[in-house]
Simulated scan of single mutants.
Amino acid sequence: MSAIETPSARDPWLVADVGGTNARFGLVTRPGGRPERVVVVRGGEYDGLADAVHDYLRLHAGGVRPGAACLAIAGPVHGDRYRLTNTDWAGTGAGLGIPYVELLNDFEALALSLPRLAGEQDLASLGGPAPAPGMVKAVLGPGTGLGVAALVPARGGWVPVPGEGGHVSAPVVTDLEIEVIRALRADGMAFVDAEHLLSGPGLARLRHGLALVEGVAAAPLPAAEIVARVDDSLCSRTVSVFCGLLGSFAANVALTLGAHGGVYLGGGIVPRIVRRIRDSDFRRRFEANLVPSGYLSGIATTAIVAEQPALTGAAAWLGQRHADRTPLPPPARSGEAASPRPRSIAP
């Protein structure tokens, strides 16, 4: 099997970040290039991923046929098979009609982007010292769901490690947070995990829980309106509690992974509220665990504010496969296990 071909305007690479709400597509037309012709579409307008890919290529990419693709999926990826956690999209890369398709978890791709992000246009400090070079990095982020991944140093590069850390228990600490959990359970939620509170739907659920605790009537609002209504006291308190929970969750991730290379926050919500996170209890809660003393105060917390960073990570993955001249395995046929692939990427 031949190695992946060099991208060009005629034979580009397709990169995608497929979330529970939106799907983002772009093309890479030269080695080391950033994604171009980036378009965001609403997933609910399509019956499946293949329909969205074909529509993007037809309407926004001049009908080109990519030579290779890397798609970051918001859900579990098993070889050539994917399933989105918060929608009913599922299938295989082979169904896209592209010669070579690589599938990554979306936060695996976001982790891969970290070595390629720099400057205020890409990153915003949320407290702590500069990230330690050459050490484990963690990335997490609330969006339609709550993603978590790590980037681990390896000989000559980095290895991304995806997971489902968003489904650990909710990181409640304060009496108010405990009361919110009790109220939500009494309202019909048998179990409340971290994603149930730290996500777009989680913001709405958190506001509902606060309203139950405070005994006030509150018509449902989507996450975007909760964040935007800075003069609404219930919405403002919701964002404040959200930031505190996010700090405790980020600390748990940092401790679990030993993330001395920094904890990076991405997803769809964080870039909209960077200043409010800085002004909140986020960093204090991040450092609040005293065992071992001072461990967390030495770890940087940083917001990812770059445009479409998961596309950058997907492009980096294909770029490394091209640089290695690694022969890509053929897509697995239905019922077959996919061939193993190398998982490291150069600095």
Rank of each mutant, 00 (worst) to 15 (best):
M1H: 14
S2G: 11
E5P: 03
P7V: 08
D11Y: 05
W13E: 02
D17E: 14
T21N: 08
R24Y: 06
R24C: 12
F25T: 05
F25V: 05
F25S: 04
L27R: 01
R30C: 07
P31T: 12
P35M: 13
V38P: 01
G43D: 07
D47K: 14
L49R: 02
L49K: 01
D55S: 15
D55A: 15
Y56V: 08
L57T: 06
H60L: 05
H60E: 14
A61R: 11
P66S: 11
G67C: 14
A69G: 05
L71F: 06
A72M: 10
P76Q: 14
G79W: 00
D80H: 00
R81M: 02
Y82G: 00
L84S: 02
T87G: 03
D88T: 15
G91Y: 00
A94N: 01
G95S: 09
G95E: 01
L96W: 13
L96C: 07
L104N: 03
N105W: 02
L110C: 10
P115S: 10
L117G: 15
A118R: 14
A124E: 13
A130V: 13
A132G: 05
A150P: 03
R155L: 12
G157S: 12
V161Q: 11
E164C: 04
E164I: 09
G166V: 02
A170F: 00
R182I: 06
A186C: 08
F191T: 10
D193P: 03
E195Y: 02
S199E: 00
S199V: 03
G202H: 02
R205W: 01
R207A: 09
A211M: 08
V213Q: 13
E214D: 12
E214T: 12
G215N: 13
I226V: 13
V230H: 14
D231L: 15
S233T: 14
L234D: 03
F242Q: 01
C243M: 04
S248A: 06
S248G: 07
A254R: 02
V263A: 07
V263K: 04
P271S: 09
I277T: 09
A288N: 05
V291R: 07
A300V: 06
T302Q: 13
T302Y: 15
A306S: 15
A310K: 07
L311V: 10
G319H: 09
H322L: 15
D324C: 11
P327D: 08
A337T: 00
A338M: 01
A338I: 00
S339Q: 15
S339I: 00
S344Y: 13
A346L: 13
